[in-house]
Design a binder for these strands. Structure first.
Lengths: 263, 263
DNA sequence: CGACACCTTGAAGAGGTTCAAGAAATGTGG
DNA sequence: CCACATTTCTTGAACCTCTTCAAGGTGTCG
């Protein structure tokens, strides 16, 4: 089957130009620049003039490492910054007073988290690293200041927020009108598509989250997630070995996602 | 019971300072100012200097009327403007290729719609008026331009977008982890709270949407919505007469919403 | 190697859906 | 303003999907 093959192929690195010398200065926070970051195209606007690019560097104050299982920010904490994920994988989740909680998203390299905090000046969800991660800390007042001067940045910020709104519309559609198989199929397709955009395989992925976290995100119990995976395996749509997933039949997944019409 | 009483009490107007003279000039679109609009506190930043307030007037190009059942914008249409609802009630909904669709929200006076369009430069959902409505048309390029100069406006735009993201987190929590009764209870509490903030009753409301639309929003079938209403009636929590709802026991609704702990 | 977290699978049960029929309200056109 | 068509809402009964409870298996990490 596929033992370590997945990890090695799927782990094709997107970046290798880190400045390790500055890195050693501070184990927790490192001063760095966007202008020579190769994730730039994911989190920053494109087509900037050199002078603007230089100014953008001012946005990122420092980098911060977050160990697996640790939180980047928590519900109730003061909001100060947005975070661009440089490496690693996060989940965000909201909770009710009565212990229930709901994973609202999984975020990977190049994606921005923390937008929830703007409106109340405090975060309203938790961001938890699902693997050791590193983020660029972008103080929001600095973003606002600079985006008054750099139009492209201003527009970019608006787009990022709008994108998040549209993404959540998609999740609402999923939660509101799809059945278990459709949800899981949509989830897998979405994950693999985002990973592919980052240079990873189109057909293989390593899940960074548990069945329970997938279930929370999809509005299902972990047993249902597990059973649905097994069903897909029976139907030769995927191979699953714990968190290693190989998609054998992408079209089948797509058909499952929009198949309500079949009746 | 409560026949027309609901309508008359619930319809307590928030505004009465419309400039009817300019209104007659054009049946579809009317040029007006924010500075003397009493919904200002809902859609515009507060604590502006007089000069800034004056500039804000430039944001609203025109007003536009939308008849009940008509769309303000549609999925796929070019995005140009955000809309501040002046009067009336909207729903927004997304759809899949295969006819399924999902109501993503209900919007009322003072709320802003159209944010979904920013990221792709095209709208990704439909906005449908559930009753005759009037909106202020705010061309987005003008908003961006002005928010580069008026810091309060810039921050306000960010807050509005963040608020929408947080609202959607709440809907995801609802769709992902609540049972039918909890969903409907949360829905009613949310509606009545927003209406109350606009000067309407805390306990009476007129639903502007059908059971089916409520169901779509809550991820339930219309029959389930109807049955759950009936259940609430049996338990003396609400009175329901078609779309007229009187809440008899707000605390009971609140208890239903966070009662997962009971076990 | 043992403890712990995570995953899988089965069987029973509950909550919500589907299908169907009828009642109530709303709107339309004469 | 009334009659009729249409839409919307309610309720029942059967069914189905997902959940719950339970047990055992697998993998991981100190």
């Amino acid at each position: 089957m596929f033992d370590t093959a997945v990890t090695s192929e799927a782990a094709k690195p997107l970046s290798s130009d880190l400045d390790f010398s500055t890195r050693r200065m501070n184990p927790q926070t490192i001063k760095v620049a966007c202008s020579n970051c190769n994730l730039r195209e994911l989190c920053m606007p494109m087509g900037l003039k050199p002078e603007e690019l230089e100014r953008i560097d001012e946005v990122v104050a420092v980098r911060r490492k977050v160990k697996r299982g640790a939180t980047l920010f928590r519900n109730g904490e003061k909001f100060t910054s947005l975070y661009a994920i440089r490496t690693g994988f996060f989940k965000t989740c909201v909770a009710t007073e009565d212990g229930r909680d709901q994973v609202t998203g999984f975020q990977m390299a190049g994606e921005i988290i923390g937008l929830d905090g703007i409106v109340q000046d405090h975060h309203t969800c938790d961001a938890v690293a699902l693997e050791d991660a590193e983020v660029c800390v972008m103080p929001f007042d600095r973003i606002e200041e600079l985006s008054r001067e750099v139009t492209a940045l201003q527009h970019h910020v608006h787009k990022i927020m709008s994108r998040e709104i549209v993404r959540e519309h998609g999740v609402m559609l999923l939660l509101g009108s799809m059945r278990a198989e459709e949800r899981l199929a949509a989830f897998l397709l979405n994950l693999v598509q985002r990973l592919h955009a980052r240079g990873f395989s189109q057909s293989e992925l390593v899940l960074r989250m548990t069945r329970e976290e997938i279930g929370s995100y999809l509005g299902l119990k972990l047993e249902t997630v597990s059973r649905t995976f097994s069903k897909f395996v029976d139907e030769n749509i995927v191979e699953v070995k714990q968190r290693h997933v190989r998609i054998l039949d992408t079209d089948a997944l797509k058909r499952i996602v929009n198949s309500q019409t079949c009746q």
